[in-house]
Write a protein that binds this DNA or RNA. Structure first.
Lengths: 207, 207
DNA sequence: AAAAAGACTGTGGTCAGACCACCAGGGAGA
DNA sequence: TCTCCCTGGTGGTCTGACCACAGTCTTTTT
């Protein structure tokens, strides 16, 4: 590497450089990344170091490599990474409880946010819910998370959702009526009503 | 690799094998992993392939390497994952607002959780606050996040905090008195009181 | 004998070069 | 025009080499 090196490992620096490059060139999903050999030359590093960086990013699901073709940006909303991590991470019981608990909290946050941020357009959530047949829980909350209009929170929710599913617990799908109720509560705009509807949906008592 | 090879890349197979090895040998955080050279021999693969696997796991925060010493298991209960993904994702202006907003939400969640989960020991938060001189905001909420007793949520908060600081905004440190008030509210156990105190601290109106 | 200096061994960190397998595109031949 | 093959570029992998560093053992010095 050229300047910003000191004691950081080369492959870490390469990851940094790649991120800069991606941002600067505005690379999107599907776009091609310079070849390993070119990168190693441009960044003044060995090809093996470049590979270490790329392999890491690949395992994270951020890029995709096709032999004989090249390396490409990926639409990293994927979750294969979460699956991998979860096999490593979610071992003790406490961690599982944390996931369940945190997911609920984030969902409540999303609801709250969504109710605060509506107004502009009365997002016809209720109509949408009614139109769906066999509404999936994830699907509903994905919608809510989007309405919250906070990309970061949405991402966090997605990750939690994936973790949640990897827990392999028996998941109860509430009846469709409860979603309608929740949608109505959301449009009422009253925090208490919303939370009450959510608790009913999740079968919670106090928290 | 020996048997289970087909078209999967070697480094992926190594990751698999490592996971098996970790499970079989019951390796815990802090334990040492066989050296790269030994692994490459045991798994019948080149050292560079082993490295690619290890680097990937390292970037994921699952292992830690120390030059001259070896490679070690790491306490990976947090999700480095969020951290990494978001560095790639948080780029535009909207994202910054999301960070600020989300941090507040998470902090409120922590407060809520902390208030629900106390009871066992009346964590002398107020006393602790009073003892501190020149209390830092982060420091206070770190304490709260710990009291919430949810490692995952704690991690998320930490990450948000880091991002928050990287935003380079002018950060106002509230007066110490407000923290005392918040601590008192927390010990009262009443949700409304707590949120009101938090809003006053953060200078918020409704949300 | 005790302490300090040095050599040795094992580890990760990095690089260069060599193959291989694969894919796409272009040119030669039908 | 169509088909086939060749060639160049790409990722996939391995090997061997060298460096930097940490811990240990040995030797030297005090």
């Amino acid at each position: 590497m050229n300047q910003p090196e000191s004691n950081t490992k080369v492959y870490i620096e390469i990851v940094r450089q790649l991120r800069v490059m991606i941002e600067k060139d505005g690379l999107k999903a599907g776009d091609k990344i310079p070849s390993e050999r070119e990168l190693s030359e441009r960044l003044n590093a060995g090809r093996s170091s470049v590979r270490e960086a790329l392999r890491a990013l690949e395992l994270l699901g951020l890029i995709e490599t096709r032999r004989g073709e090249g390396t490409f940006m990926r639409d990293f909303r994927g979750n294969q990474l979460v699956q991998l991590l979860s096999t490593f991470i979610l071992q003790d019981e406490k961690a599982k409880k944390d996931v369940v608990e945190t997911k609920k909290l984030i969902e409540m946050d999303c609801l709250q946010l969504a109710s605060l941020k509506r107004g502009h357009e009365s997002y016809g959530l209720k109509e949408w819910v009614l139109k769906q047949e066999d509404l999936k829980d994830d699907c509903f909350f994905q919608k809510v998370a989007e309405l919250a209009n906070n990309h970061l929170l949405f991402r966090i929710w997605q990750i939690l959702k994936d973790y949640y599913h990897s827990l392999q617990m028996e998941i109860s799908e509430p009846s469709g009526e409860l979603y309608v109720k929740l949608a109505e509560a959301l449009e009422s705009g009253d925090q208490e009503t919303i939370l009450a509807a959510y608790r009913k949906l999740r079968n919670l008592s106090v928290d």
